[in-house]
């Protein structure tokens, strides 16, 4: 399964260094996000990613050694983003 920020979804992101806030027009809610979440959201705005492809890219950005722990963290983050309506699941074939 892959995930993306839908093209119809208008997110406003304001980044201040390693901190950011994001306004989700779908729910009307504003969320505070950290450095990792900023990268994930920016990547998913560009194109759909699976958990594997996402963790590969994040690994190279932050130069993380422990890939297993990162994947765990990312899958948590994705569930959270999905619950907040920031991203949706898409079929891999598409």
């Amino acid at each position: 399964m892959a995930w993306e920020v839908p093209k119809t979804q208008a997110l406003s992101i304001e980044i201040w260094g390693e901190h950011a806030v994001v306004y989700n027009d779908l729910s009307g809610e504003t969320h505070y996000i950290n450095e990792l979440a900023i990268e994930v959201l920016t990547l998913l705005q560009k194109s759909p990613e699976t958990l594997i492809s996402l963790s590969d890219k994040i690994c190279s950005i932050f130069e993380v050694g422990d890939k297993g722990a990162l994947q765990q963290q990312l899958s948590q983050l994705i569930i959270e983003f999905d619950n907040l309506g920031l991203i949706t699941a898409v079929n891999c074939e598409n």
């Binding site: 406003s12 901190h19 950011a20 806030v21 306004y23 027009d25 009307g28 809610e29 504003t30 505070y32």
Partner: peptide, 19 residues
């Protein structure tokens, strides 16, 4: 970001104003 979050959570109608 600290100022932003403090202002937003303390406003009367931040949510109503949307984007």
């Amino acid at each position: 970001h600290y100022a932003f979050l403090k202002l937003a959570s303390n406003a009367f109608n931040y949510e109503v104003m949307g984007r």
